Simulated assay, not measured.
Amino acid sequence: PLKTPDLAEASKKTLEIKGDETTGWSKGWRINLWARLWDGNRAYKMFRELLRYVDPDGKKTEKPRRGGGTYPNLFDAHPPFQIDGNFGGAAAVAEMLAQSNENEIRLLPALPDAWSEGSVKGICARGGFEIEMTWNNKKPEKVIVSSKNGGKTMLIFGDKKQEIVLKKGESIEIKF
């Protein structure tokens, strides 16, 4: 559970009041914030909006629209263009799949229903850890944690916790 539920609820209310209709850096931020609130389906909804096709000639694919989406070259259609939308979207996907602080790495904290199975490789976590994992039915099946620096962390999925201590360059495979 979130460690500060009252603050999380206030943040959620603020995001609901502000609404989802936004573009560029603001869309990227909001997707990340919904992921940090562990609402994977809301984050996914907004991520799909970020990826909506926008024709470079200015025609929109849905009406009414004030802008935003993605051009055929995958640039964020702020409009005209804002790299922060691209960076924010990529960061949001990582936040949906893994979240970390100096003491823990939480797996699949905001996994949307649409991604009930999948895999990822190269997710960087605080403390110099790197995550590779596959999941099925919204649960991790295999997780490989590698350490660039050496150190310890707590790997968390739901109510399951496992302390991991690795030397620099060492990896461990965990099956759930």
Rank of each mutant, 00 (worst) to 15 (best):
86 N>W: 06
109 P>S: 01
162 Q>G: 05
74 L>D: 15
5 P>G: 00
42 R>A: 02
85 G>F: 00
160 K>G: 04
19 G>Y: 09
108 L>W: 02
54 V>F: 12
136 N>V: 10
141 E>L: 05
67 G>R: 11
101 N>F: 07
11 S>P: 07
139 K>R: 07
45 K>L: 09
59 K>M: 09
15 L>P: 01
110 A>I: 04
3 K>Q: 10
75 F>V: 07
155 L>E: 01
88 G>Q: 00
38 W>G: 01
89 G>Q: 03
30 R>Q: 08
30 R>Y: 10
104 E>T: 06
38 W>S: 06
175 K>H: 11
88 G>C: 00
97 L>Q: 06
148 K>L: 14
67 G>I: 10
16 E>G: 12
117 E>S: 09
95 E>I: 00
145 V>F: 06
160 K>R: 14
87 F>G: 08
10 A>N: 08
104 E>P: 06
137 N>W: 12
112 P>D: 02
150 G>N: 13
26 S>D: 14
54 V>P: 09
25 W>N: 05
133 M>V: 03
159 D>T: 08
131 I>T: 02
80 P>H: 13
9 E>Y: 10
63 K>T: 15
4 T>S: 09
98 A>N: 01
1 P>S: 06
15 L>I: 02
163 E>R: 08
86 N>R: 02
94 A>M: 12
146 S>W: 15
101 N>V: 09
13 K>V: 08
130 E>I: 11
98 A>D: 02
34 W>K: 01
53 Y>T: 07
158 G>T: 05
160 K>T: 07
25 W>T: 02
132 E>H: 11
10 A>R: 08
23 T>D: 05
10 A>H: 12
2 L>A: 00
26 S>E: 15
34 W>M: 03
114 A>L: 12
21 E>R: 14
172 I>A: 05
55 D>K: 11
44 Y>F: 12
99 Q>W: 04
150 G>F: 13
